[in-house]
Computed example of a mutant assay.
Amino acid sequence: MALEVEESAALLTLIRVGHIYAPEPLGAGDILIAGGRIAAIGAPLEVPSGWPLRIVEAPELTAVPAFIDQHVHVTGGGGEGGCATRCPEITALEIAAMGIGTVVGVLGTDSVSRSPADLLAKVRGLRAEGIAAYLYTGAYRVPPPTLTGDLQRDLAWIPEVLGLGELAISDHRSSQPRQHEIERLVSDVRVGAMLAGKRGICHFHVGDGERGLEPLRRLLSETEIPAEQVIPTHVNRRRALLEEAADYALRFGANVDVTAFEDPGEAGLDGFDAVCRLLERGVPLARITLSSDCNGSLPEFDAAGRYLGMRVARNTALIAAWRRLVQEGVLPLERALGLISGHVAQVLGLQHRKGRLAVGHDADVTLVDAALTPCQTFVNGRRVYDVGTAG
């Protein structure tokens, strides 16, 4: 057998678990990690004697692809009620404790006291702490703030930039962009992404406005932009908007992102109910994703748009909604995983590296217990969370 060494000295990691979902169920087995990638999956796996190896024995746990959250205010959102209402930054521990290995950072309403440069710095800090972090350039407003002064250059020259977001539509806080402005921005992102070999996501915040998804329906009807590039989020903030999102997904073969609201209020639906409703409407599961909006603000306004107060979103609601879909029998585990792993990787253009447990993929592995509670999280082979040692 290989020489078992301390974690800091190990070049290889062997995870032994009671079940593996890749997401397809593989039964009990081992996952061998080398160089930050999955080198082998099997039962049992043997490593040559003398090789420096860390062994993780977890026969009571299940290995699944580490979760992906495509909408995180990593630098904190908020600010709608003044400087005292700025939300806090999120920590690497808060991310990893939920079994999340990959996040995409966004700016929101406030791109004045926060900037794309702040966002990039935070993303790189999270990477140094072990999280696979990316970002969208831009914010709510048009023209969007950028890192290089140009959307195409941001996509082409900044590796961490995956697209544009969260650009606000149908919201009193948006810049009220004209249709031609939306079309030009999405086109710029598409070309910049092509030059960089990226998917080039345009991640749209959809507000409470009556126009709903109309700008995106027009975009896909009147231009050659492919539906896979355009992702509306918060589609469950109003029941009528969710019905519109179902029609949108079915008509265009498009993806829609459900927000795991802790308290959607009387007008909206939480993540669990929203996914159930989309499935009832016949939206293919592969077209649905879940995200948290965590560390963003949940402001309340009156009918005249006056600020009343706010709460801070957390990523605990994301895992709770996903867990409930499995525990209440809406989806089996192997299918539910796509909502927060495989489908998200596909949307972001990261499917060749993330979203499944397979040889050659990044070694992003979450170990969950029988209640589907994350207990350990590995990102690129590095253990970034262990419930047994977490303070």
Score class of each variant (00 low, 15 high):
Ile182Val: 15
Ala363Cys: 00
Leu318His: 02
Trp51Leu: 03
Thr75Gln: 05
Phe378Pro: 02
Gln176Cys: 08
Met98Thr: 13
Arg281Met: 08
Arg54Asn: 06
Leu220Gln: 05
Glu243Ile: 01
Asp69Trp: 08
Val47Tyr: 04
Val312Cys: 04
Gly29His: 05
Ala260Phe: 07
Val359Trp: 00
Phe67Glu: 02
Pro25Glu: 05
Ile182Lys: 14
Glu210Gln: 10
Ile95Cys: 10
Gly138Ser: 09
Glu224Gln: 11
Arg127Gly: 11
Val344Asn: 05
Arg141Cys: 05
Leu93Ile: 11
Glu160Cys: 03
Asp257Val: 00
His361Cys: 01
Leu147Arg: 11
Val258Leu: 06
Leu3Trp: 12
Ala128Ile: 00
Ala121His: 12
Thr373Ser: 10
Leu135Met: 14
Gly78Met: 02
Glu243Met: 09
Gly305Thr: 09
Val359Ile: 14
Leu308Phe: 08
Ala117Gly: 11
Asp69His: 00
Val347Leu: 04
Ser170Val: 03
His343Ile: 01
Glu166Gly: 01
Asp302Phe: 11
Asp188Lys: 12
Met1Phe: 09
Val326Asp: 13
Val106Gln: 02
Leu372Asn: 13
Leu164Tyr: 14
Ala303Ile: 10
Val74Leu: 10
Arg54Asp: 00
Gly108Tyr: 14
Val161Trp: 08
Ala254Arg: 12
Pro232Gln: 00
Ser291His: 09
Ser113Gly: 10
Ala193Leu: 04
Ala358Pro: 04
Gly342Lys: 08
Val275Cys: 07
Pro284Gln: 15
Gly77Arg: 07
Val384Tyr: 03
Glu214Met: 02
Pro144His: 02
Phe301Met: 09
Pro44Val: 02
Asp30Arg: 13
Gly388Asp: 09
Val326Glu: 03
Ser292Gly: 03
Pro232Leu: 00
Gly355Arg: 01
Val330Met: 05
Tyr385Met: 00
Val384Met: 01
Gly200Ala: 15
Gly149Phe: 10
Val365Lys: 14
Val142Ser: 13
Lys354Tyr: 09
Gln376Lys: 15
Arg173Gly: 01
Leu155Cys: 02
Asp171Trp: 08
